[in-house]
């Protein structure tokens, strides 16, 4: 047994090809951009070594700070929304749903498979106000709630919220299915026993389910976190960062800096920051796991 699993040739065959491709295509560019971060301009245009200037610049850059704030808000809302709604849905499937379990589970997973560009276009039309009311506003109109009609993605106050709703909508089915699987793994008699002991819904969740699901919740949080930190495609598709900079994330700012401002060097610094944020955030979430 041991001998078979210590087979060096097999390990090399298993790991090396993937390791090479991965290192060259994924890791090397990161190191490369670390090198870029010491330069001004972009390759071919005003490309000069400037030492740590790009890093210092980050601290005084109000656009960067604004994007960071947007991004953090987005992370907290969407991460909690996706995981929370997913969990709620899963609990509902498990406890309330008697028939059509499979059908509904299937339907709820649907949006996950859609292309982001398509979802963005769909929601643009849903939130539309001019020249014609979109789905949401015309429904509000039909219900007589004319006071609530507003340019959902056309004003800074509601744009980020609208974007978050879209992203939660897309992903909650995904988390629901994962949590449902985890719930199925919990032995039925544990829950039955708790019910017999007179545990109500909330107590059941707090004392029985939450501890058992803890590991899964943390995995999902990390998963969602690493997706939301990189917030880019959905915001590009729905609002393109607007209005103003109300939905401009760090990644979008980085993209702008690199390609519109032609400052790939400074863009790399922002990219490295996103990377650090991602590492830091995940390790904080992991801390909760180790505690108990």
């Amino acid at each position: 047994m041991k001998k078979v699993l210590e087979n060096k040739t097999a390990i090399a065959i298993f790991v090396l090809p993937a390791l090479v491709i991965y290192s060259v295509i994924v890791i090397l560019p990161v190191i490369w951009s670390l090198y870029y971060s010491f330069y001004s301009g972009s390759p071919g245009l005003k490309w000069e070594f400037i030492g740590f200037d790009n890093f210092l610049r980050l601290f005084g850059d109000s656009n960067f700070k604004a994007s960071l704030a947007v991004n953090l808000k987005y992370i907290s809302i969407v991460m909690l929304g996706q995981v929370g709604m997913g969990l709620l849905l899963a609990l509902m499937f498990y406890f309330w749903l008697k028939r059509f379990k499979n059908v509904i589970r299937t339907l709820v997973f649907f949006p996950v498979v859609l292309p982001t560009v398509a979802v963005g276009q769909l929601f643009q039309k849903i939130y539309e106000i001019q020249p014609n009311y979109g789905l949401l506003n015309s429904l509000l109109n039909a219900l007589g709630l004319t006071g609530l009609i507003q340019p959902w993605i056309g004003q800074a106050s509601t744009a980020l919220g609208s974007l978050c709703v879209m992203d939660i909508w897309v992903a909650m089915g995904f988390y629901a299915v994962i949590f449902y699987g985890a719930l199925l793994d919990i032995p039925g008699d544990v829950i039955e026993a708790a019910k017999i002991d007179g545990a109500g819904g909330l107590q059941l969740f707090r004392y029985i389910l939450a501890p058992l699901l803890r590991a899964m919740i943390i995995t999902c949080l990390i998963f969602s976190f690493s997706g939301t930190v990189k917030m880019f495609e959905s915001a590009t598709a729905l609002t393109n960062g607007g209005p103003g900079a109300a939905t401009r994330s760090l990644s979008m700012y980085m993209y702008n800096v690199s390609f519109t401002y032609n400052k790939v060097g400074y863009g790399s610094v922002v990219a490295l920051f996103i990377f650090m944020l991602c590492v830091l955030g995940s390790s904080i979430i992991r801390k909760f796991d180790i505690k108990e």
């Binding site: 939130y127 539309e128 106000i129 001019q130 020249p131 340019p151 993605i153 004003q155 607007g242």
Partner: peptide, 21 residues
């Protein structure tokens, strides 16, 4: 500019003129 000016792109604005909106 009507409601939700930031959600109107130039194409839409142009067609609003041409359709009398």
């Amino acid at each position: 500019f009507g409601e939700g000016v930031n959600t109107v792109d130039m194409n839409t604005a142009g067609s609003m003129l041409m359709t009398g909106q």
